[in-house]
Design a protein around this nucleic acid. Sequence first.
DNA 1: CAGTGAGCGAGCTTCCGCTTGACTT
Length: 709
Amino acid sequence: MPSKAKTGKKLVIVESPAKSKTIAKYLGEGFIVEASIGHIRDLPQPSDLPAELKKTSVGKFAVDIENDFKPYYVVSPDKKKKVAELKAQLKDADALYLATDGDREGEAIAWHLLEVLKPKVPVYRMTFGEITKEAIHRAMDNLRDVDSALVDAQETRRILDRLYGYEISPVLWRKVARGLSAGRVQSVVTRMVVDRERERMAFKSASYWDLTGQFGTGSATFKAKLAAVDGAKVASGRDFNDDGVLTSANAVHLNDELATSLAAGLENADFRVRSVDTKPYTRRPAAPFTTSTLQQEAGRKLRFTSKSTMQIAQRLYENGYITYMRTDSSALSDEALTAARRQAAELYGPEYVPQSPRVYANKAANAQEAHEAIRPAGDSFRTPAQVANHLTGDAFRLYELIWKRTIASQMGDAKGSTATIRLGAVATDGRDAEFSASGTVITFPGFLAAYEEGKDESRGDDDSDEARRLPNVAKDDSLTASDIIAIGHETSPPPRYTEASLTAELEKRGIGRPSTYASTISTIQDRGYVRKQGSALVPSWIAFSVIRLLEQHFTDYVDYEFTADMEGDLDKIANGQAVGAAWLKHFYYGEDADPGLLSIVNNLGEIDAREINSVPIAEGITLRVGKFGPYLESSIPTVDPKTGEVVESARANVPEDLAPDELTAAKAVELMETAAPRNASWARTRTPDTPWLPRTADTAPTSLRSSRR
DNA sequence: CAGTGAGCGAGCTTCCGCTTGACTT
């Protein structure tokens, strides 16, 4: 066999196969572009370690906790084939270019490739923020070495997550239930959902009343709302706190009676315009999509789950319709800016495009910006009409959303004016009532011509800033009045998170990464911490127990700032100001006053499982999380009337679909009463004067039969 | 179903982040 001659080609390795095709095109002859398809090595499951290692200091985490936290890496089973292919390609190449993403994880992938492929040819690290011919060639002119400090930072992050998850999860198995898990990201996310439910449980609703009326001059009428009585502002939803207490000192709180009598007293009153105030209105377009904002907006406008949004986006990306869909950057490349501005001008006219391109600053904490924003691919965008024949239902709708958002982001502000009319009259009882109405008129739609961002369900009063035109009126004009009615309102608790609003919050706080938002939300559902009720995320009672334990014993680890603090430290490692191994040593074994994770876990002392799994619900009634789910227990001893026996406690099941905030004291009593017959005595002693028909196996069918006849 | 428990104690569960297919339901 003749000895194999080198092809003289250069091997370039990127992360994503879809990217590799485009890059190959730009680099041309002489280059072979391959993809690693993400990470190629990772820490194995400790159970998969070779037997001889299991007994050593590596055995617990696949990290040597006694020797500078040296990780024990293995090539991931599903990457063995890929690695073999890359090795074969490298044999024929005369240079290797590691072109993985320009962020912390990408740097680590480059290093792992280096470790596994052991190239004998020159190796260069290259990075680019966008996939254009210019950017790729610029990257070729700015080659460097793999940044070992940045790799150290990634490795530290990886090991920290293993130590955190695999040290704390077993505590939950022992104290709450088997199979549970804790982690730097999932535990904080679960805590957010639990905290929101706690706020809802503690929430006390307040009721307040106001008036609306129809006012007008001749034929034109408009609706206005009571704003002030005798010069004092009328209290509305935002004037109450979550305890149902009025917090605005100068506001008048109208109840049913006061509002109804005022409405009656205004029936024939002489209403006049008191002021007309006009203010200019401008609104700016939203930034181009990041992973997080795409998931939110697709959730709001298209009702997609985060998971399905990502699946559809992946297909669009692979087929060349959009740019990369896992990104935390809202920046557009120069090529995209030009394309968006040109297309906006063509479709809407040059006056719709501002003089200079709009630049969006990144709002998210810890953004790494290895890619540009999510936008239509290419240097001239295909319009939705042009792709309509190639894309089916959901894919088309997602493309259209991305296209609109991108175009709109480079269009001018919407301009108009907001008019506010204040009008009033004196009621028959002498009270002065002032109403107000406002309406916005858009004189130049700007970006609104292309796209408007959706809104999340808002709290409190319904927004009256709708785009409506108010009639032309002037001060002291007399107005007709009709339909003056009193309306009662109740303040509402903070809304539950949805996938979309939770993702937004995670991005804002810098918790998790674009590639994991969707899977994190799946994880907390798979573990039974959270379930979806419609689009709302509702925590389980198990989650309450878990979070309570973590808050009490691992306070710092479930702090909302934990990840942000970690990122700060990792930055120091990436800058060479700190070393990963020393940082991990501090984290795991402690330092000075800080005990470290290991000693916390080893010195938990007596965690009273019963206490952790209990939540007081009402006087004498406690919710407990047991082996078979949550149940209610009453601690009020009662005497069984038949046997004369003292019953120490009674129990009742809690329905699966009952959200924690729906388990009020009254509901708990009701559940105890309708539980098993043995609780009958409990119910009778508790509410002696209420006649109560036990719904037992004996009585229920009878009553059903009789009621049906 | 039954509720933090007698004794012995095997074997099991778990993290985050980067990427796609190859699987089943």
